[in-house]
Every structure is written in structure tokens, then in C-alpha cells.
Simulated assay, not measured.
Amino acid sequence: MSTDTPVDWTGLAPQLVDAAQQDRAWYLRIARELVAPGDRLAVDVGCGAAGMALAIARMMTCGRVVAVDAHPAVLDAARDYIHAEWSDPRVRVEPLRANIPAEITDLRDTLGAPADLVWASAAVHHVGDQQAAVTALAGLLAPGGRLALAEGGLPEHHLPWDVGLGEPGLENRLHAAQDRWFARMRAELPDSRRMPYGWTEALRRAGLSPVTTRTALDEQPPPLADTARRAVLEALAARVGRLRPTGLLTAADLDVWDRLLDPADEEWLGHREDLFRLSARSVHLGVRP
């Protein structure tokens, strides 16, 4: 969420639209569980392409959903996606630029009312002081309002353990490198502080109760549809590209990835019928008393 993070949000914006389309069914399933009949104001913080904002809107009978992000390129992608996907005048879906938690007071004033539901997916971990961000988001809620954090779970897997090139366990080593990159990214954030406890405890420390967690399996078995296959290849290429200059992947593994991600190579992953998507996503929910 901070504009100082080393993540290239401008370059990632087109991928966020693809992700919103790929995750549509998951968003709808979670939104169906989160939205209450009387909800009139919901906020999607770190909205990406607004996939979840639209899913929440589809579960509401009237009111508005505010899709919040700090990055202009991301908000442009969200605005375009909302324009293409939404036309129901009973529920307004509005993009809004704001930085969390620095501009939380302004956001509260801009909303004009306390929120019934605040959703933040993979957003809070981009803030240096995560507990301060959770507490600030909890402050947006009306009594009985819910704060839902989609953080944690298990990383997405796509490949068999042995792909036939290099040492087996290639994707496991990619996840390990990603963990080390993530630790570096967090250490470099402004006002970075460790949060040596879980997201449910962060919600409790923000004054919310009760607090619960739901973890859902997200699975697309092989063979993948062409759109899903393309999304997997793009996601792997983006991750390898981000890690390439860090020194966190060995030269041998990079050589293998170069072959697997090269459409001109006979080992290109796009030729394989055994690609899949498998992950577990956790949503932590706290209620304002």
C-alpha cells in the first residue's frame, strides 16, 4: 500500500485485471459469506483491479462499494474494469485513491459514514507497521461491522515436483526464494516493524471480537483452460523476473526457468498438460463490538 514499496505496481496493473478474472468465482464465494443483508457501505482496501469490490457489490441490494488503492496505475486498471463489468445503479462502485494507514483519517471523512464491511487482500503486508494498519482499518467500522483480511494461507503451486530439467523441487525453491525476497521487501518499508504474531491476534489487538479464520482450497486441476494456462505462465515469469536480480535463485535454476518460460524452447511449460493451480487462501475476520 505504501508508494515506497519496491513493487512495480505500474507493470503489474495488467496482471491484476487477469487475476481479477481468474479469481472471480473465489471472490463471489467469499463475498457471499461476508456480506450481510443490511450492508450499505463496503470498502475494498488495496483493491487491485476491483475484482472483490465487484463481487461484494453483486451481493448487496443497494448502497456503495469504495475500491481504494494508493497507486494511480492500479486505480486506472480498477476504474476500467469497473466500467466494463458494472452497470447496476442500485449499488455504486467507486475507485478512490488513499494510502493506508497514513491517510486513514481522510478516508474516514471521505466515506462519510462508518463501513459495514472492510476487505483487505494481500494489502496490509505492504505497510511497514502492519498492526497500525489493521487498527486503522478497524477504525473505519460501524458497530457490528466486519474487517476481513485475506492474508496468509499456502502459496500457489503449478508444477509437478520433477519437471525433467535440473534438480527436482524447482518450484519449492522458487517459493523459498520468494519468502526471502518478501523478508527483504518488508525490512525496506518505511517504519518497518516486525509483527511476531498472527493475523487473528492483530485483529484482537485492534479491538475486534469475535475473531475467526476460514481457509479455503483453491484448485484448478489439469488440464488447464488456455486462459488459466496463460495466467500461470505469466505469474511464473513475473516471479522469476522479480527474483532474477536478487541473487536468491541459483544460476542453475535460472537456466531451467529460462527454458521452461521460453515459447521457442521444446521444454516450454505451455506445451505441458500437467500444469495446475493449487493453493489455500485464508480469510481472517474480526467484528467491531
Rank of each mutant, 00 (worst) to 15 (best):
A150R: 08
S209Q: 15
D179L: 10
G198Y: 09
R180I: 10
P210R: 08
S192M: 07
E156R: 12
L233K: 01
W199E: 04
N172F: 12
E219L: 14
L233N: 02
L174C: 03
L203A: 08
G241M: 10
L149W: 05
M185E: 15
R230S: 13
T212A: 02
T215Y: 13
H158G: 05
P210W: 02
P155N: 04
L189G: 00
T246H: 14
G169S: 07
R229E: 13
H157R: 09
A206F: 02
M185Y: 07
W161C: 10
W199G: 01
L154D: 13
R229K: 15
D255M: 07
A187S: 12
V256W: 10
A148Y: 03
P160C: 01
G207M: 01
F182W: 14
G207R: 00
T213L: 00
V211F: 06
L254C: 00
L236W: 07
L154N: 05
P210N: 05
R184K: 06
A237H: 15
W257D: 05
A148K: 13
R214F: 10
R239E: 10
E188D: 09
D179S: 09
D218S: 13
D179F: 12
A183Q: 12
L249Y: 03
A238C: 06
R230C: 12
P245A: 08
L217H: 12
G241E: 09
P168V: 00
G166M: 01
E171S: 01
A231V: 03
T213A: 07
G198C: 09
S209E: 11
T227Y: 10
